[in-house]
Simulated assay, not measured.
Amino acid sequence: MQPQDAVMPGGIGPYRPLRLLGEGGMGQVHLAVSPGGRLVAVKVVRPELAEDAAFRARFDREVRACSAVSGAFTAAVVDADPAAPVPWLATAYVPGPSLQEAVAAHGPMDERTVRTLGAGLAEALLAVHRAGLVHRDMKPGNVLIAGDGPRVIDFGISRALDGTVLTRTGTVLGSPGYMAPEQVAAPQDAGPPCDVFALGATLVYALTGRGPFGTGSAASVLYRIVNSEPNLDGVPPGLGPLLADCLRKDPAARPTPEQLLGMFGAGSAWPPPALWDDLRRRATEAAALAAAPPPPVRHQTTQPKAAPKPTGGHGPNRRRVLGLTAAAVGGVAGLAGVGALVEQGIGGSGARHGAAPRGSARPTGVAVRKEPVRGDVPI
């Protein structure tokens, strides 16, 4: 991890950017530090999108969704300003890889480790659903491996159970390979069971290094999800039937997160031993960046564009979501007290995070998540 010139000049709200973690078609995620020395990950949308009232409404909704969810294995929002000239969202930072990165670097995980992983993800989904939300984009790139357990991140396309949807009629938001059949065919019917389907597909990836519906164009993968049975070759017999139940075509036939908590059984110590060096290195390097003196301030020569006037009430311009203090967020900190989560989510994960290859064909009427073009995290 090295400082980069690509960080934003000045600050993002009260936060001083340290390093660009990743960027994509809709925004950037920066590692930043608070005035009190707390490491955070700050998501910043692109200025041109900030001028789009519909996008602002979606971003404001994302802030509300993230702030409504709390739990040991979910994201905690630290701060946000959806009404800023360039809207941003800050969460605590965890120096850990995504599940996609971990499997790519160290190979598939063993059954006991995946049982622990599965129980953590089920508990995370329970917290999401109790908040009245559906995640709708569970996948290996949206699961982080922290020192004290997995973290489910990216509520960028979550929807409220009351049926409020900000997408256009006839479109589907999600990531090919991890979307439930009903999410593909009728997005308005994508309720909590679609998250259980995605959990099953994510655990198949953790065990085998591949998704249960193969690779190829988005259209071909989505076709297999709707019409073919999952490929569970390589899944241990002890988990095969359980994951097959999670991947059933009929949403009503899938287990609930509450039921899953009692089905994964005894797991293993966490984190996987192969990841300890990686976790320590990330924690050490992030702490060193935070402790380094700030660079000279570069003054802006042009004035930023004013935020468009809101069409409805969104509260004050600056929102301390949930009123979380640094100490409160520290309760879910990872190694050496350095952070708890990289919240990410304005788009989807790229090839290294298990998304369809760049340039894959996309089926008509399906809005596939945008891939990042650089960095460590999806945007």
Rank of each mutant, 00 (worst) to 15 (best):
Ala307Tyr: 12
Asp277Ser: 13
Pro357Trp: 00
Gly345Asn: 01
Glu258Asp: 15
Asp278Tyr: 08
Glu343Asn: 07
Gly354Trp: 08
Trp270His: 10
Arg282Ala: 15
Ala274Met: 14
Val321Ser: 06
Gly240Asp: 09
Pro363Thr: 04
Ala287Lys: 09
Arg254Val: 10
Gly347Arg: 02
Ala269Trp: 02
Val297Gln: 11
Gly347Thr: 02
Pro273Gln: 11
Asp245Ser: 12
Pro272Trp: 00
Val297Cys: 06
His314Tyr: 13
Thr364Ile: 02
Val338Ala: 10
Gln344Glu: 06
Gly312Arg: 14
Pro293Asp: 01
Gln259Ile: 01
Thr325Ala: 09
Ser268Gln: 04
Arg282Lys: 07
Arg362Trp: 03
Leu261Glu: 00
Leu322Pro: 03
Leu243Ile: 11
Ala367Ser: 04
Asp278Met: 07
Ala336His: 02
Gly348Val: 04
Ala336Asp: 03
Lys305Val: 12
Arg358Met: 14
Ala244Met: 12
Pro251Cys: 04
Leu289Cys: 12
Trp276Asp: 15
Gly331Tyr: 02
Thr311Arg: 14
Arg298Leu: 06
Pro296Gln: 08
Leu341Thr: 09
Arg319Trp: 13
Leu324Arg: 14
Ala333Gly: 08
Ala253Pro: 05
Glu258His: 15
Gly350Lys: 00
Ala287Gly: 07
Pro310Ile: 06
Gly348Ser: 04
Pro272Asp: 08
Lys309Val: 05
Gly262Lys: 09
Ala327Gly: 09
Pro316Leu: 05
Gly339Met: 01
Ala290Pro: 05
Ala252Leu: 12
Ala286Phe: 06
Gly354His: 07
Pro273Ser: 15
Ala292Phe: 02
Ala367Pro: 01
Gly323Lys: 08
Pro271Ile: 12
Ser349Arg: 07
Arg248Cys: 10
Leu324Val: 14
Ser349Pro: 13
Gly240Ser: 13
Asp245Pro: 01
Gly350Met: 00
Pro293Phe: 08
Pro363Glu: 06
Leu279Ile: 10
Pro310Thr: 03
Gly339Lys: 10
Thr364Pro: 00
Ala356Leu: 05
Arg298Ile: 10
Gln303Ala: 15
Leu279Phe: 00
Glu258Leu: 15
Pro293Asn: 02
Phe264Thr: 04
Gly331Ile: 00
Ala266Lys: 09
Pro257Leu: 10
Ala283Ser: 15
Gly337Asn: 06
Val368His: 04
Cys246Asp: 00
Gly240Tyr: 09
Leu261Lys: 05
Lys309Trp: 01
Asn317Val: 13
Arg362Val: 14
Gly240Trp: 01
His314Thr: 07
Trp276Val: 15
Pro271Ala: 09
Gly334Val: 02
Glu258Cys: 12
Gly337Gln: 05
Gly334Cys: 01
Leu341Asn: 03
Ala288Thr: 08
Ala306Tyr: 05
Asp250Pro: 10
Cys246Gly: 08
His353Tyr: 09
Val366Glu: 07
Ala291Pro: 02
Glu343Ser: 06
His353Pro: 03
Ala288Ser: 14
Lys249Val: 04
Gly240His: 12
Gly267Leu: 07
Arg298Asp: 00
Pro241Phe: 13
Gly354Ile: 07
Thr256Glu: 11
Arg254Asp: 09
Lys309Asp: 08
Ala367Val: 04
Pro295Lys: 05
Thr302Val: 11
Leu335Val: 05
Thr301Trp: 10
Asp277Phe: 01
Arg369His: 04
Ala244Gln: 14
Pro241Cys: 08
Leu242Lys: 14
Arg318Thr: 13
Gln300Ile: 07
Val329Ala: 14
Ala288Phe: 07
His314Gly: 10
Glu285Leu: 11
Asn317Phe: 11
Gly331Val: 03
Arg280Asn: 14
Arg318Ser: 06
Leu324Tyr: 05
